[in-house]
Computed example of a mutant assay.
Amino acid sequence: MFRKDYLLRMIEEMTEAIGKALTLRQQRKHTEALSELDELLRRQFGMNLSLLNSLPAEDVIEMFRFRGIIEVDNLQQAARLIEEEAYIYAEKARVEGISDQEKQDSEDEGLTRLMKSLHFYLYALNHGANPRLLEAPERVESILEQTKEYELPARTEKQLALYREQQGRYDQAENSWYRALQVGDGLPVNYRDEVRSFYERLRKLEDEQLEQGGLPREEVEEGLAELTR
């Protein structure tokens, strides 16, 4: 009960801060809006936005480890703050009177943050976060729509593949695994073995489940054979 009340208080505080940031963003007070989010992050987690955005996603996730367990509900709160930060940068890019370079820089900063928030949402959902706490599934779909023209990092494609599998959308999971294989981002991870494990898990399902997931058994076998070749 105490843990639940503590989380709810944090959510209420975050909702209030995001509301203030939204008002400031609409008034084009972007620096003040960013400061509002940064101050909340410091109070709740002892971090700041600069730190979260400068570190690799895996290192940030480890910062939410407590007694050997990643506190995924806290992680998705951080994702929400970074998502809101992304929208502030996107708004800055639309301000009249700035140079083309400043506009491009703001767009890039916003996109980078949006993708990082997506990674944290997906990781949190894949590891047991409460999906209703911040409506994370809806936020994932919204961010995917906003970033559909861009290439996601391989590590994020991996999380997306696991998430789609969890949803029973096996055809989309397969697509994400193959994008992860194609993209790669220097991580010392053998995605090929993980894709093989994905197909092996699907092999154990009933034909009806595979059909509903958009990946009939023959396509599972074809994919596994192609991977082996």
Rank of each mutant, 00 (worst) to 15 (best):
N126W: 00
L224E: 05
E13C: 06
R94F: 02
T112H: 13
L160H: 04
D38G: 08
R196Y: 09
L162Q: 11
L34K: 14
A180I: 09
Q212L: 12
A136C: 00
R164Q: 09
E71D: 10
S35L: 10
P216W: 06
A21N: 07
Y170C: 03
Q166K: 15
R113I: 00
L114G: 01
F66Y: 15
L40K: 07
L40Y: 15
T112F: 13
L162V: 12
L215G: 01
V140N: 11
L40V: 10
E12S: 14
E13N: 13
D5H: 14
Q44S: 09
R25E: 01
R164E: 10
G19L: 12
S176I: 03
N48V: 03
M14W: 04
R113V: 02
G213P: 07
H30G: 01
L227V: 02
I11F: 14
P131F: 03
L202C: 08
E145S: 14
R80W: 01
Q76W: 05
L133P: 00
V183D: 03
M63V: 03
Q26H: 08
E16G: 09
L52G: 12
Q159P: 06
E165F: 11
L111H: 06
V60F: 07
R65T: 14
G186K: 07
E226C: 02
E91I: 03
L7V: 14
E71W: 11
G128C: 01
R196A: 14
E141H: 08
D185A: 08
E39M: 11
A225W: 05
R94I: 09
I11G: 08
L111E: 10
P188A: 10
N130P: 02
L8Y: 13
L34V: 13
D5F: 12
D100P: 10
G213N: 09
A57E: 09
Y191E: 04
K4N: 10
F120P: 00
R65Y: 08
P131W: 05
P216A: 01
A78D: 05
I61M: 02
Q26W: 00
E206G: 15
T147P: 03
Y178G: 00
R192P: 04
K158I: 09
Q182V: 02
Y178I: 08
I70P: 01
L224Y: 06
M1K: 12
K92Q: 11
R80V: 05
A124L: 07
Q209P: 03
G19A: 14
K148V: 11
A136H: 03
L7E: 13
A225N: 11
H30K: 01
M115K: 10
I70D: 05
M47G: 02
E211W: 13
D59E: 14
E107C: 06
D100V: 14
D38V: 07
Q212G: 04
G168K: 04
E12L: 12
E141K: 15
A78E: 04
